[in-house]
Amino acid sequence: MGLQRVSSVYVATQELLREEPRFTEFAFGRLLEWLDDGVDSRGESYLEIRRRLVAYFDRRNRPFPDELADETLNRIAKTLGQTTSIAVTPPARYCYIVARFVLLEDLRRRPRYLPVEAVRAEPCVAPVSSADGEHASMREQRLECLDRCLDKLKPEQRELAVEYYRDAKRTRIDRRRELATNLGITMNALGIRASRIRGSLEVCVDDCCKGR
């Protein structure tokens, strides 16, 4: 069939995508526009929803969460290409509906657990059995990347990250409360800011490592 009805919503399934797995630049543009939901986020909405999808699949112990997140978004792009609009709102809710299908299909395809050895190689992470020299060189590379990425942060971002993530337990909580008061924002808003800085650093280090 290719399309499956879920409580008045049609979702592209694996069969449909198998025929034409890659979507065009135009379709990708439509996907970005649809995810933005009327506000131009310059791709931020796409990156954020992809991050959430990867985390969702990972929490469900799927061995290749990135692939499943991409498959989810591919299907949505395909659906957007075939219909004038998607009735489900907000877009994130529809993403979740499609993600559930992708998860179920993957569960049928692959076993839940893979032995550690079978997990694909992680970029910039040395295997246990590697020679010391190689291990050291990879670590050196990761540190170099972290170094570069830290340098790219604005001074106020670095300061916030340091103040937010230093210490532990009670001291950390008190420090954060003080920081939020000084900045005139809530603890939640502060947490979001700090998480974004940390997230951007993590992505930056990953990209830097992959590019080497």
């Binding site: 959430r52 994130a92 809710r93 979740y96 939640n188 947490g191 998480s195 997230g199």
Partner: peptide
């Protein structure tokens, strides 16, 4: 929470903070 972690911005952000 699976659903909220994708659909609800507040939960998604709080979850990320708690995980960190």
């Amino acid at each position: 929470l699976d659903e909220q972690s994708i659909v609800d911005d507040d939960v998604a952000c709080r979850l990320l903070t708690v995980e960190n």
